[in-house]
Design a protein around this nucleic acid. Sequence first.
DNA 1: TTAAGTGTGTTAGTTGAAATAGTACACTTA
DNA 2: TAAGTGTACTATTTCAACTAACACACTTAA
Lengths: 121, 121
Amino acid sequence: MIVIDYKDSRPIYEQIVEKFQKLIVKGVFEADSQMPSVRSLAMELSINPNTIQKAYAELERRGFIYTIKGRGNFVSSGKEYLKYKIGEIQIKFDKLCEEAESVGVKREKIAAYILGKEMSL
Amino acid sequence: MIVIDYKDSRPIYEQIVEKFQKLIVKGVFEADSQMPSVRSLAMELSINPNTIQKAYAELERRGFIYTIKGRGNFVSSGKEYLKYKIGEIQIKFDKLCEEAESVGVKREKIAAYILGKEMSL
DNA sequence: TTAAGTGTGTTAGTTGAAATAGTACACTTA
DNA sequence: TAAGTGTACTATTTCAACTAACACACTTAA
């Protein structure tokens, strides 16, 4: 199911995150179904359990899975990740708006630019 | 004028960039006045000329100074850096808007959020 | 209670990209 | 031509990210 590409320069845990993320977004897994345990997947891929752990922690941070200590990792209900992602985007807009204001660009101007009513900031 | 802080974890060239940037923004240097040469400043700070070169290249990229080969580096006219910075911010807004649209957030909604007419995206 | 499963935390080793240095080259001016 | 300037190439160093080893803690079922 999951294959590591050692020609790929990206870290292993990142490859794992991406692959599960795609599968979950596609709806391949049922909500609340159990993920492979960190040990079994590590064994299958011949890598250290900590690397799977790191991937799972990131998937949890992004809202794709949730963890119950001693029981395992489980797939989140489908829309959790969208909520997470929009939250992240909102934070980025907040920071960027502050940055723009610090160089004299007003919010009205930003809004107009985004709506295509102004060609530049 | 410029002092390196070796307790500071940031790289030397970055410290130099920041210090000159602040001085130039403050208007301490006249426009078109000459910067210290890479060699003289390197000598003064007891570091390699390439490190100064790297700092100056970054300052040029940001629009704070300009270079004439064989002659030296010179301070840009005051407003160059603002133009640069606003350009950078514009690019970031473009990317962020695309990202938002990819998860179903419309531009109208973004504009409304930025203007404070909506509490969240 | 115990055994076998699960995740977690701490520490140590590895490795690759970024930072810095050494050196040689090219342009500008007097 | 000499003494100043910036620049390019390569080598070395350093440090943070990644991965691994191992011990600990929780959950469940027999």
